[in-house]
Design a protein around this nucleic acid. Structure first.
Lengths: 184, 184
DNA sequence: GTCTATATCGCGATAGAC
DNA sequence: GTCTATCGCGATATAGAC
């Protein structure tokens, strides 16, 4: 395979984004490019080859997580489920699943909250939120069920941001209750 | 009044905290001491007389807002209401009220989210969240109602963090529905 | 494609005048 | 109690070798 000794560019980019996710979660967006680069096993100069500026790095990171969440929800839609609210149910399942998972994904929203500090990222997040609102509205649920269930799902994702971490069992009960509400 | 020409120290402190709240909401915690000072009509040196470091300023700011929210909820408890869930109902009312208010208070949580970027503030917020959990648990609601209503109330407060801003009418309907749930 | 310099700048914090 | 001046650090970003 030619003479490329190290990682290919794709791998490096991914490694940098993963490292950035970790570091930003720990230290916020004031985390240093040097920290990110080192954790990815790359030099600062190397990082700046792949992402021309810090803002570009943070934007790419935000995009990645927003897309990841959307993909997870789309994958969680039950193909056998043809009732109104099928997208909302997938949204609930993913939100609670992520809130449950003690590993990296649980902190997705902590990351987005940190990233939203950056104006350009906040714009991106707002556009994404609008798209969710439109998609969920097209999902066929009555308005008041939609806003209740959506608020609760978002609340579950958001609570860890300010340090509140509900018990797993509690979360599972809440999820089931939310799913039931979409079918009432 | 002696010879003190300008504001008294209390006023200056308050002006600085107000300025800091604005600036941090706009620019995140990477906002500059100089910005904060200028907006309060004080020099950077003046600021640092009142708050020995940037961290102290941010901590004071976080404390102020957490206390303000708690005081608002306590004030919103209906004295005539002696049923279980009276604290939760006040919490819901204040959360939705703040989400409705287009003025400064609406952004309280955006501010806290930004501030939570700072480790010392995150600790403070976590302690506060634990206290809320304890207080609300003592409020007499069934566990599953509590977690549903709390998640929804928190979701309403949190949604603006990532740019989602529901319609006022929608919020009022949601509030009424949440209040009803605590009485079912 | 990645690394090692290095330029440059802006910030937090201090010292001391007023 | 507040201001001015300044120090010193650490950060982003660039230039150019390898």
């Amino acid at each position: 395979m030619g003479r490329t000794a190290g990682r290919d560019p794709e791998q490096t980019r991914t490694a940098l984004l993963d490292a950035a996710a970790q570091v930003v979660r720990e230290r916020g967006v004031s985390a240093t490019l040097d920290d990110v680069a080192r954790r990815a096993g790359v030099s600062k100069g190397g990082l700046l080859y792949h992402f021309a500026s810090k803002q570009e790095l943070l934007l790419a990171l935000a995009r990645e997580w927003l897309e990841r969440f959307r993909a997870a929800v789309e994958a969680a839609v039950d193909p056998a489920d043809t009732e109104p609210g099928r997208l909302m149910r997938a949204y609930v399942r993913v939100s609670v699943h992520e809130a449950l998972d003690a590993a990296a994904t649980r902190d997705a929203l902590v990351l987005v909250a940190h990233l939203s500090t950056v104006a350009a990222v906040a714009d991106l997040a707002r556009a994404d939120a609008l798209r969710w609102q439109a998609d969920l509205r097209a999902d066929g649920l009555p308005e008041d069920v939609l806003s209740l269930v959506l608020a609760a799902a978002d609340g579950v994702s958001a609570q860890p941001v300010w340090g509140m971490e509900p018990e797993p069992q509690e979360l599972e009960r809440l999820r089931d209750r939310l799913l039931a509400l979409t079918r009432a």
